[in-house]
């Protein structure tokens, strides 16, 4: 992977502590895309049972921004995220992460790319039950045989307030604590982009709000790129930008969203 392809956010956070980052990166007006899909189509089945989950979609997730993907059930928003994150392959079109074309990669190379460039936060946390919180956090780094940057680890753990929980198994943690661990896991490898799949869907509203503000803060402070699928307008309001998906197509887009505006637009779309 050429270094130039790495996102600004990732580069900066290499050397500069969290708090002093605010102006350094996010002010870049036309940030390069951390991930993008162009003319993306995804078709399941064939003939009569053919389902067009994505229909010629072009979206880019710019570096250092927090993007929310919204849409009604079955709109294709999850498929969009899966394909953009390299979890699934497009039927046609291209998907890139940090400048690398995903379609040309073998399964192995795609996995290595995910390992280095992508972080995930899932709705049901999906921590490995046999590993402790600390082990879960470092897994994406250690699985590649790399050493964990202890500075990054300490910073992430302290900011998320999970230091006292590091030796606990997931079953001994509350939902909020588990999701914090999952967020730490996504951050610790300093990926080019983090994808979230309804990250607050299984949390109570207060815990959810804490997680979302942390994500928002991370983007603003460190220039981390985040793309998040959600159906909750108040969650989407934490993002810098909201993309609306319906019937496999991007139908609208909103910058500097508020919960009310997102709600109204959603209502308009689903009508």
């Amino acid at each position: 992977m050429p270094d130039a392809a790495r996102s600004c956010g990732a580069d900066c956070s290499d050397m500069i502590p969290v708090d002093r980052l605010a102006t350094a990166c996010t002010s870049t007006p036309t940030a390069p895309a951390a991930a993008a899909v162009r003319n993306a189509s995804k078709i399941y089945g064939s003939g009569d049972s053919e389902v067009r989950a994505l229909d010629d979609v072009t979206v880019s997730f710019e570096s250092g921004r927090f993007t929310a993907i919204m849409g009604p059930s079955g709109s294709g928003k999850s498929t969009l995220m899966h394909c953009a994150a390299g979890l699934d392959r497009l039927t046609s079109g291209t998907a890139t992460i940090a400048g690398t074309d995903l379609e040309s990669l073998s399964d192995r190379d795609l996995t290595l790319l995910r390992r280095e460039k992508v972080g995930f936060i899932f709705q049901s946390f999906n921590l490995l039950p046999a590993l402790t919180a600390a082990e879960n956090i470092v897994l994406p780094v250690t699985i590649g045989g790399n050493a964990v940057d202890t500075g990054t680890f300490d910073r992430v753990v302290d900011v998320l307030g999970i230091r006292s929980r590091l030796d606990h198994r997931p079953s001994e943690l509350s939902g909020g604590q588990q999701q914090r661990v999952a967020v730490a896991r996504a951050l610790v490898s300093r990926p080019a982009i983090i994808f979230g799949d309804e990250p607050t869907g299984n949390l109570d509203s207060q815990t959810g709000a804490e997680i979302l503000s942390f994500m928002q803060h991370t983007v603003r402070a460190t220039g981390q790129t985040i793309a998040m699928v959600t159906h909750d307008p108040s969650a989407a309001a934490y993002a810098d930008r909201v993309i609306f998906v319906k019937d496999g197509q991007v139908v609208d887009e909103m910058l500097a969203p508020t919960a009310d505006r997102v709600y109204d637009l959603m209502k308009a779309i689903t009508r």
């Binding site: 994150a85 290595l112 999906n126």
Partner: peptide, 15 residues
């Protein structure tokens, strides 16, 4: 499920 998560966060099929 667990294996799926591991694959997603960068564990190769080989691993």
């Amino acid at each position: 499920r667990e294996i799926g998560v591991m694959r997603a966060i960068g564990t190769t099929a080989q691993q």
